[in-house]
Simulated assay, not measured.
Amino acid sequence: MNDVSTGFGSRVGALLIGGCVAIYASAAVADGAALASRVAPLAAQTDSSLGVSPEQRLQEELRVLLLDMIESGAFGQTPSEQISFSIDSPRQRASSLGVLVDSSAGAAAVKGLQVVGTTPGSSASRLGLRSGDVIASVNSVSLAGLGDDANGSARAALVLRDQLESLPDNATIEFELIRDGKPKSISGTLESAWIPALHLTVGDGVAVAAAGQSGGSGSTSAGKGCGRLSIFDVAPRQQNLHAAALINIDGERSPFGGQEVFRLSEGRHVLTVGEKIKAKYLAFNEVFRNSNIKNPYKTLEIDVAPNTTYFLAVRLIQDKRNVWRDGAYWEPVIWSESTEACG
């Protein structure tokens, strides 16, 4: 999340629902209409970028993002010539509503989420959502008076996002609004987009786990080929899949340093895995969760085939989501595979 300072006093948040970006703008404003006037230049900037090729636009945005990460210390003291990592993501569906809402705090969403603006051509714009509307409910799920989330933002924004993520392709979506002080209902079809499979390498090559170079002490029937293991968190939450923490490979912990893709030799490998399930999905608090200190990790054996990437996640077991002892509520899984060359 980036803080965009405009030189004003108080801080108001706007969350882009259906995407991966949260925008926080400093502004001393009394209502959503005033805040919307500050969001308008963002929409204009988006329109102006349509004249460049997708490759040029993506390259420029990646350059800005990497510069921000370097300046913020995300890579620590690693010299730029030594920064190397790879991001792999399978083809995935994205249900994007395209609405900016005031998610600064629960107090800002007592009656529901206030709409700050919509992105041009989005589902929100097509459905008729507009600045100043207050979204009181979505598909009969109330967004009013839900208070703050763990970060102090409006919990209603998370509820709205979860509702969108759970909908199938071309699902009907219904909003109960407050517009100009009066109740109003709108409905329509939420259009989904498919994001193509992604393989992005930053730096001179793929960061390699030490265990993957030698095959690891736990490797058996090792061949000459290699595959990859990805812990990049793109697992679909509607399938009860969540982020995994990779602790070691074949009993050997490498200086992972934030890398998310690992090259492994062909053959069997043993992974030690931890869970990174967000607290909102669990039926118990962090005190119980952290009490399982004797055995917080689980192992998973995988047979790596040549030129195959394996996507690691953890599955939340729904009928045991309140059983915190011995970590009964989760298990490590390979949830997806893709074929790609591994040199």
Rank of each mutant, 00 (worst) to 15 (best):
A197V: 03
S125H: 03
L129M: 12
P168Y: 11
R130H: 06
G132F: 06
G117L: 06
L167R: 06
L129N: 08
K182R: 05
S123Y: 03
E174D: 03
L167Q: 02
K182C: 01
R161D: 15
A197K: 08
S192W: 09
Q114L: 14
R179Y: 02
I186K: 02
V134E: 11
N170L: 14
Q163K: 10
I186P: 01
A150M: 10
K184Y: 10
F175T: 00
R130C: 04
I178M: 04
L113S: 10
P183E: 05
K111Y: 09
A109I: 05
A193I: 15
T172H: 11
S122C: 13
L143W: 10
D180L: 04
R130Y: 03
R155C: 08
L146W: 05
A171I: 11
Q163N: 05
I195A: 13
A150Y: 12
A108R: 11
L160P: 10
R161K: 13
A124M: 14
D148C: 08
G132Q: 08
S185N: 14
S187C: 04
G152E: 07
D149K: 10
A154T: 07
V116M: 12
A154G: 11
L129T: 05
D180E: 02
D162R: 14
V141K: 12
D148V: 06
T118Q: 08
A197Y: 01
V138L: 07
A156C: 06
G147I: 05
N170C: 12
A144L: 07
I173R: 00
E176Y: 05
I195W: 04
V159H: 05
A157R: 07
G145D: 02
A109H: 01
S131Y: 11
E176C: 12
T189F: 09
T189W: 12
S142H: 03
A124H: 10
G145F: 02
A109T: 08
L127N: 05
V115N: 08
E174Y: 02
T172F: 06
K111I: 14
L129G: 10
K111L: 12
S142P: 13
I186N: 00
L177G: 06
G121K: 04
D148P: 12
L127I: 03
T172Q: 12
I173H: 01
G181E: 02
A136F: 04
G121P: 01
L167V: 09
E191T: 15
